[in-house]
Simulated scan of single mutants.
Amino acid sequence: MRRIVVAALLWMGLATPAFAAPLKIGYSAWPGWFPWKVAEAKGLFKKNGVEVQMVWFEGYADSITALVAGKLDANCQTLNDTIAPAAAGAKLKVVLTNDNSAGNDQIIVKKEIASIKDLKGKKLGAELGTVDHYLLLLGLQKEGLTQKDIQFTPIETGAAAAAFAAGRLDGVGVFAPFTTKALSTGKGKVLFSSKEFPGAISDHLVLREEVVKARPGEIEKIVKTWFDTLDYIKKNPEESLQIMAKQAGTSVAEYKSYDSGTRIFNLEQNLVTFAPETKDPINLRYQSKIIADFLVKSGLAKTKPDTAVLFEDKFVRALKP
């Protein structure tokens, strides 16, 4: 009888088997995801009764590949980097909005390059098919250019920043904290950034669909931990900054410089992002259609997925007061 009751509770997501493995969450270098390190360091997952293994990736694209391959239960990634694999058949669910990029994704170029139109014929690098490749293409499109008008080099983000600093590229698409490396020689400048494209780059906790179906109770606790972590950071700013800067490999002062370029989202803002479609730039249903169209048009995706099925808002709604 007890087994039948437990099975029923598990089916409803109200109980978790004692033998369940920790949920593996991938994350990489981005200011909007470093708060997860605070959650891990201060035991906030365990405080909420959920076992989590945070898995660090030096290369952002590797974390996306690991999620799609089933080596992770969840990953921290952008909306456009979720739509692209979904277009290829991956079954994924966005359950949380960590932030919107508001300047920390940057196209950095040599100082003599005065405008986007001046990029024609220049050597530019970015991580193929990911967030700053997308940003680069958005900027080019704005001025009537395409990737065919530049010499594009696909290169991992950290390596891209180093290549630009070494003078091997005319420009590069990178995100914080790699922006610091790219600008370290004083020979570069920011030509444009995600600040010019509000809502275009949003960052999320994304899970494999099968995990969402199998372990909803744990996922709700993880989502709650995100908001508990933001509260902890607000109450303990100096300690939290030390933890996040260490994970980022930067000084606290450098880390503070990223604040204005990343708009961290609280519960109320999450509810807005998951709301029925409006033309608000942070609305995910609206923005996802724009991204899907762009990815197909630019050749980054072969087919346009049904983006409506990507969003699972029940976990943030469950936390609404």
Rank of each mutant, 00 (worst) to 15 (best):
T157N: 05
A182M: 06
E156V: 13
T130S: 11
K111M: 06
G217H: 08
E209A: 12
I155W: 03
G188H: 12
I107W: 01
F175H: 12
Q141W: 08
S115H: 08
G125S: 15
K122L: 15
G188W: 13
A200R: 10
I113K: 04
R215I: 07
S193H: 06
K213Q: 14
R168W: 03
I108M: 08
G199L: 05
E143Y: 07
K122A: 12
I150S: 07
T225V: 12
G217P: 14
F178G: 00
I222T: 03
K142Q: 14
R168K: 15
A126N: 07
E209L: 00
L145R: 08
I150N: 02
K221N: 09
A200W: 12
V174R: 01
E196Y: 05
G139T: 04
D105W: 06
K110M: 10
F227A: 07
G173I: 10
K213T: 13
L230E: 10
E210L: 03
G125K: 02
G129A: 12
R168P: 00
S202L: 09
F197W: 12
L136N: 00
G188Q: 08
L119M: 14
Q141C: 04
A165G: 01
G121Y: 08
S194W: 07
V131T: 15
Q106M: 15
Q147H: 03
L230D: 06
I107P: 00
P177L: 02
Q151A: 12
L119G: 00
L145T: 04
R168M: 09
I113L: 15
A162M: 12
A159L: 14
A163P: 00
T153D: 08
I155V: 14
I155Y: 06
A214F: 01
G144C: 10
D203F: 14
T229E: 09
L124K: 03
P177E: 01
F178E: 11
K195F: 13
F197C: 08
K224R: 15
G171K: 02
L183V: 02
I155A: 06
